[in-house]
Amino acid sequence: MVKKFMALLRMKYIEMFAYQWATLAWSTGAMVQPIITMMVWINIYETEMESFILYFSTLILVERLTAAWDVWDLDRDIREGSFSNYILRPIHPIHWAIAENIIYKGLFLVVLVPAWLVSSFFLPSLQLHLNGWEWMLFISALLLGGGIRFMFSYSCGLLGFWINKVTAVYAMFEGISLFFSGRIAPFSLLPPIMQDISLYLPFRYMIGFPIEVITGSVKGADLGYGFLGAFIWVLIFMGILGFLWHAGLKKNQAVGG
């Protein structure tokens, strides 16, 4: 299995360099929305500039490292029938997507971490003073967030076995997620009712929770509950994914050809 996965990683690495300009756009283009949102908030709360810079810089990093685009690929592949080629091979198609995620996120790290380090010389608020334990908590929250976001996107993609243009459904969830994942504003600025609701939805654990961990805005028992919530959503999406996969294969029309 390790050999198979290494071959997929190698192939995705080579493929990534075939899409040079697209890769560059994916690495950097996603910075635009958080930067503009940050400028809006700084304009409103000028005194909080430093904390907004830290929050939205972390948002850029976490958003890229948990990004999920699999629904777009699955929607196209199922609708056009090219998904059959993945089903026919003796390895679960999800491994192709996992390999692609690892390769691209590796690249995002290579682009974003040096950018952060350089920026931190000019912006003191970006100089992090975390101990080993805090780094471990952040990385764990990030991995759980990435896992939830990936499985959410892949599960929506599998709905393509039943409905056309499943990306429309996904876009609706993305709209909701903008608010509940902390991408529009830090949770502390959301109305209390939205803060409460966000605890029970998966979106907070995708992006907002890892940011709260690194910025130190969640502590003690709340930190524990945050990890518990993230872990429960991982389990829920594993169940949903397994169910949709098996039911989808029965429903598959293997169109085209």
């Binding site: 071959a7 192939m11 493929e15 075939a18 090219s82 059959s84 080629n85 003796p90």
Partner: peptide, 20 residues
């Protein structure tokens, strides 16, 4: 319908198939 990976050479698909 093609099983070859579109944007990279066929040899890469062959190597992936070798592993899979």
């Amino acid at each position: 319908k093609s099983q070859l990976i579109w944007d990279i050479p066929p040899m890469e698909t062959f190597l992936v198939n070798k592993a899979i």
